[in-house]
């Protein structure tokens, strides 16, 4: 350690008397945690305030029906069996469009991530087509596939396809090269390297892509069901709006929220299961 010149007495700043002071604590914070109970209480409070406002006449029932009326509307729908018809139509389209789009997206994304030719040819196409709002293609799909189910499924499929491609591709691209070299150094066949090294390595990115594609799929589902659909939550919302039945309209919105929540929970479970190694 170097020794500097000793401070001369008198010239130095007035010697601070060495009073002992506690070191002030400066860390902490920036570590938000979430309290489950707080969320439920806040949720209940908002609904209670809403119900109160409606009951007291502060909120006009046509502008915003009370939670009670919405529940009644849902109960009516359930009793008449329409609820199930709407839901099953919507969920069927969603499942079909999302899984076909995801399968195609995974295959293309994997190819883009692994093969130079696929990447050179495919990436510009994907980049050009990805930003198109797929709703804009719905009229075209109706001309191509007719007003029935295929055009609706195709819209969802296309909407899901592109984000899946991009997430899979970047996930594959980010798999550590050293792991692939390890596979090669043990003479693993290419198929094994793809399915045991590359694909699981890209899984976190693929799963986060699922969240994005699922929310896009719901948006497109509703849009597609607003054109020429008899059943479906989107059709329910549109029809209720046309008849000024705001209680049925919001009941439809609640259903959409529940669909979204359920998908979110399923995906969280899937992540916890597939990514438990993290």
């Amino acid at each position: 350690m170097s020794e500097g010149p000793l401070p001369k007495e008198g010239t130095a700043a007035p010697t601070r008397q060495a009073a002992s002071r506690a070191v002030p604590f400066r860390g902490g914070g920036f570590a938000p945690s979430s309290h489950r109970a707080a969320a439920w209480i806040a949720f209940a409070a908002v609904i209670a305030a809403w119900q109160f406002g409606s009951s007291m006449g502060y909120i006009h029932p046509l502008t915003l029906p009370s939670p009670e009326e919405i529940l009644t509307a849902l109960a009516d729908l359930a009793r008449s069996g329409d609820l199930w018809r709407h839901l099953s139509a919507s969920l069927g389209r969603l499942a079909m469009g999302w899984s076909l789009g995801t399968l195609a997206g995974l295959a293309v994304g994997l190819a883009l991530g692994m093969f130079s030719i696929a990447r050179s040819v495919g990436l510009p196409f994907v980049s050009a087509l990805f930003p198109i709002p797929k709703i804009a293609l719905l009229p075209l799909f109706i001309i191509w596939f007719g007003i029935g189910e295929p055009s609706k499924v195709a819209t969802i499929l296309f909407g899901v396809f592109f984000p899946t491609v991009i997430n899979t591709y970047s996930g594959v691209d980010n798999v550590a090269r050293s792991l692939i070299r390890m596979g090669q150094s043990f003479d693993m066949p290419t198929r094994d390297i793809v399915f045991k090294v590359v694909f699981p390595g890209a899984m976190p990115a693929i799963l986060s892509g699922f969240r994005i594609s699922a929310s896009i799929a719901i948006v497109l589902l509703v849009a597609a069901e607003m054109i020429g659909a008899e059943w479906g939550v989107g059709a329910l919302v549109l029809a209720a709006g046309n008849l000024m039945q705001t209680d049925y309209l919001i009941a439809g919105v609640v259903l959409l929220s529940l669909i979204g929540l359920t998908i979110g929970i399923v995906l969280s479970r899937l992540e916890a299961l597939l990514l438990r190694w993290r």
Binding site: A176, S178, M182, F186, D187, K196, P200, G201, R278
Partner: peptide, 29 residues
């Protein structure tokens, strides 16, 4: 099974496999 076998600086282990799964990997094919 593999005459020239590497041990890597960054270990090159598959994080989604257990220790046993990693050791079994080069035997599976």
């Amino acid at each position: 099974l593999n005459p020239l076998t590497y041990v890597f600086q960054d270990f090159a282990l598959l994080p989604w496999r257990s220790v046993r799964g990693n050791v079994r990997l080069p035997l599976e094919h």
